[in-house]
Amino acid sequence: MTTVSENVESPSRATGSGALHAFEHWLLNYRRTWHGSVFSGFLLPLLFILGLGMAVGGYVNGSDAIGGADYVAFIAPGLLASTAFQIATGELTWPVYAATRWGSQYKAMQASPLTNDDILNGHLLYALFRAAVSAVVFFLVMAAFGLLDSPLAPLAILAAMLTALASIGAVYAISMSVKNESALSIVHRFGILPLTLFSAVFFPLDQLPLAIRPLAWISPVWHGVELSRASTLGVAPPWPWLAHLAVLVVWAVGGWMFARAALAKRLKV
């Protein structure tokens, strides 16, 4: 019974690998469905670019409002960031709710050496992983359509990941705290969807009435979208890029702290 240490990769407490072990759990579930998700990862941008970009583009291409850019090239980086946002947060609504209410994945982890932080970070890491897969696929589709106008374009993937990172903590905290599952539909309908619609993905922010714009200013999605667009179009973002970055970092850190508190409250026995 003293063989434990020999077969253990690393004392996970010391190296912080606990979160990776929790991440592996979600990855194992993903193994069964990954084909589908990569396929839809290609299909989604394709549909957007062909349908929305080409069709709507016929009306608005070269318009002053979008700085004379091609409409497809204008919306594609925005969609890249907002899709990463949607995939990451979607992975943290029902699955997070289910993991503590219906399933017992968290309970099993709790009995192991994993700490609450490991459990949290492992799940967040998985959401980021899903976002990364979608961002890379989306980026490749953009490249195939010749929508990358700047050598800095790959930074758009980073911008998309920052968008995801900035939103996951808050969404996790909400899913962990809501009283019943219908609240999650509300999160989707009145949180995730409007954030996508009013974050300058499909039209520039100055098309919105001034009264609504501050909502975008505090939305992590808008900042991510603008950074992504600046990268692929090779233009300056509306705010100094450090300011955009700062908002995203505040969301990421604040969200994580809320998530941590919500998890601790839920797992308390």
Binding site: E9, A108, P113, L114
Partner: peptide
């Protein structure tokens, strides 16, 4: 630990349940 209510992952098969649980302990 054998808790009063089972905390198995019903989506996974038996082998996967054991292997993934081993991973929580950092077992290769």
């Amino acid at each position: 630990v054998v808790p009063q209510d089972d905390t198995l992952d019903t989506e996974l098969n038996l082998l996967e349940n054991l292997v993934i649980y081993a991973r929580y302990f950092g077992i290769r």
